[in-house]
Every structure is written in C-alpha cells, then in structure tokens.
Design a protein around this nucleic acid. Structure first.
Lengths: 229, 229
DNA sequence: ACAAAAGTGTTTGTTGTACACCCATGC
DNA sequence: GCATGGGTGTACAACAAACACTTTTGT
C-alpha cells in the first residue's frame, strides 16, 4: 500500500538533542545507527513523524523508543530543511532539545540503534546527516536560555547545593563565576527553598541542600519578575 | 501525475508574519484568502514548500508572490504541526517572521489573495487556520528579541531620530521609557552614527538623524559586547 | 506668542564586581 | 593536622531611575 499526492512532499522527521550534566562536563546523548544511511555513524535520536501524532508527541515517542527516556523537559529548537540533508530524499526535521538528569539515565540502545552513550560537547564525533550543525544550534540556544529562564534545574537532581548550581552555569557558559556574588544573586531572587538537609557522603563539610520552587517562580513571574543571571 | 510514498506524509507549508511599524502602532500584514479553505478569511501569507527549495527560500518566495515584498529581515519563528490545524489534511507549517519598513510597502493583493492590508496587532480579526496563535507567538518573540538584539532598526528607515527609535521600543514593549535615560543608554553603546543631517518638514525644531552602524556592531560583538536595552 | 518637540545634568539608590578569611567535617 | 569545600561581609564602581528646564523652529 502506498500514499499518493498530487505534488511531491518532503518527509518529516523529529530529532532530539538530550543534554545531561556530568560532574564537570555538559554532555549529549547519542545513538549509533544500526541501519543505513549512515550505518554505524553516531547521531542524535530521532525518526519519522507519524501522520496522527503531533510534533512534540513524535519527539517524545522517539526519545522513549530509542533511549528509554521519558518525562523530561522538552522544547522545540529549530527546523532544518535544506536540500540534500538526507540522502534518502528531501526531508525536513523539526528538532527538539531535552534537559535531563544524566545520572537518572543510563543509556541503552533500543530500536534502530546498536549503541548509545553520553558524549562531552567538547568531543562530539562527526555525526550522521547535519546533526553536528543541529547540536551547535542547540548549544547556542541552551547558553542563551539558561541566563534568562530557570531551566538549568532540569539538569540537576531535585535537591542540590548552591555550588553545584554554580558549576552548572560555569560549565554551560564556559566562564568562572564568583561564589559569593553568585549566591547573593540567586538567593535574592527568592526562588530556591532552603531545605533542612545537608549533603551526605562527602569528605568535607557538608553543604546545605536547596530545591527550586517552581510555584514561587510562577507567582513572581506573574508579578513581572524575570529570572536573569 | 502523482507522487507515491510508502507511508503517509504531512504536507509542509511556510507562513510569514510581516511586522511593520506605523506612526503609533505595530502592525502585521495580512491577506484575504481568495480560495478555500477559509475563503475570504484573513490570514498570514504563506503556502506550500516546493520540493526543490529550502524552507527559507520558500518563505521568501511566498512573501514575494503574495505581497510583493522582498529583501527583508527574515528569521525562523516556530514550527506548528498539531493535528487538525488544516482541514485539508495533516499539515505542518514552518513559520517565519519578517521586519520591514511599513512605509516602503503598500500592500497589494497578488496570487491567491483578494486583498491585503496592514492590521494593528491590537485589532487582529479571527484568522484562518491557527494563524492567531502563530501571531501571538511572533509578537512574544519580537518583544523578547528586540531587547537583546539590535533588530528594531529593520522596522525603521535608514535614517531616524532618537525619539522615533524610543517610540519603537515603547510601542513594541508596551511601556513608557524615559527620554534622557534612553538616549544615554543607546548612545553609550556606540552603535549609532550621528549624521550631519536633521529632520525635514516638521512643524517644530528638527531633530538630528542617526543611522545604525552595523559594521561597528559586529566589531563590538566580536569583542564580547552584547546589545541590551 | 504659542505649540511642539529637541536637547541637556544631576542626584540617589541599587546592583555588579572584586576580594580574603575563618569554619566544619572527614580522613 | 590537613585537605576540602562551606559559609560569610565590605568597599568601590557602574548603572538605573527619577526628575525639570531652556532652546529651537514653524505656524
């Protein structure tokens, strides 16, 4: 059975850049393709959009199918549609990016993938299709966005120390920040809940744990507050 | 002749929100559809992507065909692909937004349109498809973007007064700005060239004209400068 | 002379930035 | 007792915000 149209149509895919924060590096989840084209090449997870599912649903489904990851922060990134970006024929891809807690997700290859793994963004191999370009776009977006929207928390566990949060910004923005100034700034915003809990299993004085207060943030935002680092 | 595929494919379109700045209002260029679906409804210009043209080329072509507008600032906005957004069948649309000097473009209906015109963003009629939603997205993007990228100039003639530039920001951001503070801030950036020319044909003291210095901006940007209002 | 907008400085408060030391804990 | 990060305050500079009057020009 085939589907026929009066005019030729590009194929439509979704691709998903998954960011995770390792101890000292920002990483991206890649899969190794099991099938041509670009068999054995590394690529970002993605696939064809079904005719009866929304773009976001398609992105979530592909993510789940290829990496087992679900229930994550997901946002549309950009749509790439240049001629020749897919050797199988004209294909446009709607890309999404996701932020996950890397330690919650041990990559395992699922359908269509012979392998999966986290790659440091400083060490991305040549990828299938125009995926290197997509990743560059995603990194730029992430760097732009974390300074004016509180999305960085999505990369951390629920409870975290202020130093860990600071490291997150340092890693993503590629620049050192001053500890005291950072803490003053972020605490002044009043969007973090200080917990009655401290770090465990560290070989030095244990730090206070904090939690992002999403409800508080929404309240403040309604009143005109804008997160800005 | 038809084109057949193994799996069903969504149709792919591009749509283009064209912003123009009238004396006291931000406006959007709309066309009145000559054909079903939504015949006689107002809509944003757009149409099907040809199989052999990039998305951006398609957006530029549709803009040219339907409104006669060419050579403009154009940037991808967002891709809308919900089920049911087009009664003809599954269609995803890659939307773009353009910034033009409104006084350079007297709207005239071209192909597929029985009419064309500028509409104040405070007075947009119910549009075809999900175009009202697309416009909302475009306005939010524009408001977010003009404060940290110098794109507002695209809405003005080459030469403009500082008050006109200030009005631009006031109109788009929907808030009053202080004249002296605004001038200090924008001049301190050193991205405007002061011309040896003043306004003509005004019934009051004529103001100095300025010009956006794009080369200077790129230089500064390379050195880490970020435009911010 | 009057209407309309141009042009221009200062003060005050807030925030950014730079910087250094003692503290608590685990090993 | 030492290594590691935790936790804290202050001084100075820069910028944001608020504010009012005189000048120029055309009608």
């Amino acid at each position: 059975m085939t589907f026929a149209y009066k005019y030729p149509r590009p194929a439509t895919t979704v691709d998903c850049i998954v960011f995770g924060l390792d101890e000292d590096e920002l990483k991206i989840l890649l899969i190794q393709r099991a099938l041509p084209p670009f068999e054995s090449h590394w690529a970002i997870p993605g696939g064809y959009v079904n005719i009866d599912e929304s773009l976001e649903k398609a992105a979530l489904r592909e993510l789940e199918e290829e990496t087992g990851i679900g229930n994550v922060f997901l946002e549309q990134l950009y749509t790439f549609g240049d001629l020749g970006r897919d050797p199988r024929g004209r294909t446009i891809t709607v890309s999404y990016y996701a932020l996950v807690n890397l330690f919650d997700h041990i990559p395992h290859a699922d359908s269509d993938a012979k392998n999966a793994g986290w790659f440091s963004i400083d060490n991305i191999p040549p990828l299938a299709f125009d995926h290197n370009k997509i990743i560059d776009t995603a990194i730029a977006r992430l760097q732009g966005k974390i300074v004016y929207e509180p999305i960085g928390f999505e990369l951390l566990p629920k409870k975290f120390t202020l130093l860990r949060l600071q490291k997150l910004y340092e890693i993503i923005l590629c620049k050192k920040l001053d500890k005291r100034n950072f803490q003053k700034k972020i605490l002044r915003m009043d969007i973090l809940t200080q917990l009655d809990e401290i770090q465990k299993d560290v070989s030095h004085r244990a730090a206070r744990l904090f939690q992002f207060n999403h409800e508080r943030y929404l309240e403040l935002k309604k009143g005109g507050f804008v997160f800005e680092l």
